Amino acid sequence: MKEIKNEKLSSILFIEISEILSEEIRYIKKNFLVTLIKVKITSNINLIKAYVNIYPSIDEEIICYIRSKSLFYRKLLSKRLRYRIKKIPKLDFYIIDNNY
């Protein structure tokens, strides 16, 4: 039962995080694309692991920007999902290399 709950929760969070990233990233002046690949939630529901890919290449400035705004993104998630989820877990971003 807990696995089904985590799958449903991760699919809801995937949609919301991808929308937040697409809205927020467009304010940076560089030409790049951030794609949300996968969202995983730890078994105790304390951490959201969001795996992103950056095109055309990984830039350290973009990575720092996304990670520094994770608290802000969590606050946006809590506003968007306030009637569906009681407590939003901590949000952490992991960068997937383009050359897998």
Rank of each mutant, 00 (worst) to 15 (best):
I95A: 02
S78Q: 10
N31F: 14
I63S: 08
I17K: 02
D92M: 03
E23Q: 15
R26S: 11
Y73Q: 01
I45D: 11
F14Y: 15
S18Y: 03
R67H: 10
M1W: 01
I62S: 06
K87A: 00
K29I: 05
L13S: 06
D59E: 15
K86S: 03
K40M: 13
R84M: 08
I48Q: 05
Y94T: 00
I37K: 13
I20C: 08
L81W: 04
Y100I: 13
D97P: 01
Y73W: 08
Y94D: 00
I28Q: 14
A50W: 07
R74L: 10
L81I: 06
N44G: 07
I95V: 14
P89V: 01
E24G: 02
I20A: 08
K40S: 13
V39E: 04
S70Q: 12
L9Q: 12
N53C: 09
L77E: 02
T42I: 05
E61G: 05
S18P: 07
S18H: 05
K87V: 01
K29C: 03
A50P: 05
I28M: 10
I63G: 04
F93Q: 01
L33H: 01
V34Y: 04
Y100P: 08
I28Y: 12
I58Y: 06
S22N: 14
N31E: 12
Y100E: 13
F14G: 01
E19T: 09
S43G: 13
K5C: 03
V52M: 03
E19H: 15
I66L: 15
I28V: 13
A50M: 04
P89C: 04
R84A: 07
Y94C: 00
K87E: 00
E3C: 00
N53S: 15
S78E: 06
I62Y: 06
T35R: 01
L36I: 06
D92Q: 12
K79Y: 03
S78P: 01
E60D: 14
I54V: 13
R84D: 09
I62G: 11
V39P: 03
I63Q: 10
E16M: 04
I96S: 09
N44L: 09
